[in-house]
Measured scan of single mutants.
Amino acid sequence: KDKDLLKGLDQEQANEVIAVLQMHNIEANKIDSGKLGYSITVAEPDFTAAVYWIK
């Protein structure tokens, strides 16, 4: 199951987060929520590491 990592990002921010996570071998998903911006989700086992790397 995926957990929400970040919400309300613009496309550039979302792409930067995806890139950082991929560099650390964390699979992440970018979801277009329309006017609400983009959300990033990661698998539950990767959540703690993902939070660490996006600081």
Rank of each mutant, 00 (worst) to 15 (best):
Q11I: 13
W53R: 01
F47K: 01
L36A: 12
E12C: 14
H24K: 04
Q22W: 11
L9G: 02
A19E: 07
V42E: 02
D46K: 04
D10I: 05
S33N: 15
G37Q: 06
K3I: 13
D10Q: 08
T41M: 08
G34S: 03
P45R: 15
E12T: 10
L36R: 10
Y52W: 08
F47A: 02
G34M: 04
D46T: 03
K3N: 05
Y52I: 08
T48Q: 14
Q13F: 07
H24F: 06
K30R: 08
L36K: 11
K35D: 12
F47D: 00
E44C: 08
A19W: 12
K35F: 09
V51N: 09
P45D: 15
T48H: 12
E12F: 12
T41S: 08
Q22P: 00
I40K: 00
G8P: 01
A50S: 04
A14R: 03
E12L: 09
Y52C: 11
L36V: 06
K30D: 01
G8W: 06
K3Y: 09
L21V: 02
I54L: 12
D32C: 12
A19M: 11
A43W: 06
E16M: 14
L21N: 02
I40Y: 00
S39P: 00
W53C: 07
F47H: 05
N29G: 06
S39N: 10
G37F: 05
D10G: 07
F47P: 00
N25V: 03
D2L: 12
K7M: 11
A43K: 13
Y52M: 11
A49T: 09
K1H: 10
L9Q: 01
N29F: 12
N25T: 04
V17L: 10
T41F: 07
I18C: 07
A19K: 14
T41K: 07
M23V: 07
I18G: 00
I18H: 03
E16C: 15
K7S: 13
V17R: 01
F47L: 05
V17G: 01
D46W: 09
Q22N: 10
D4A: 14
D46H: 06
T41I: 10
K30N: 03
W53K: 01
P45V: 15
F47E: 03
H24Y: 09
Y38F: 13
D2N: 11
E16F: 14
A50P: 00
I26S: 00
L21G: 01
K35I: 13
A50Y: 05
D32W: 14
V42S: 00
N25F: 08
K1M: 11
D32F: 13
T48I: 12
L21D: 00
K55H: 13
G34K: 04
N29W: 12
V17Y: 11
G37N: 04
V42Q: 02
P45M: 14
I31P: 02
I54M: 07
D2T: 14
L36S: 10
L5H: 02
G37Y: 05
A28P: 02
V51L: 14
Y38N: 01
M23W: 06
G37D: 03
D2R: 15
D4K: 11
G34A: 04
I54V: 08
V20Q: 06
D32M: 08
M23I: 08
W53D: 02
L36M: 11
D10Y: 05
I40V: 10
A28Y: 10
K1W: 09
L6A: 06
G8I: 02
I54H: 03
V20D: 03
F47T: 02
V20T: 08
H24V: 04
L5R: 00
T48R: 11
Q13K: 10
L6H: 02
I31T: 06
S39F: 09
Q22Y: 10
K35M: 11
E27H: 14
G34P: 04
N29C: 10
A43P: 08
K1E: 08
L5N: 02
A49S: 08
V51H: 08
K1Q: 10
G8Y: 09
G37R: 05
E12Y: 10
T41H: 06
N15E: 11
V20H: 08
V20C: 11
D32G: 10
E16V: 12
I26N: 00
V42H: 02
I18M: 10
D2Y: 15
T41Y: 09
N15G: 04
E44V: 09
V17H: 02
N25D: 08
E16R: 14
W53H: 06
Y38E: 01
D2G: 11
G37K: 07
K7R: 13
I40R: 00
E12R: 11
A14S: 04
G8A: 04
A50V: 03
D10C: 11
E16H: 14
K7G: 09
G8V: 03
A28G: 06
A19F: 11
T41W: 12
Q11R: 11
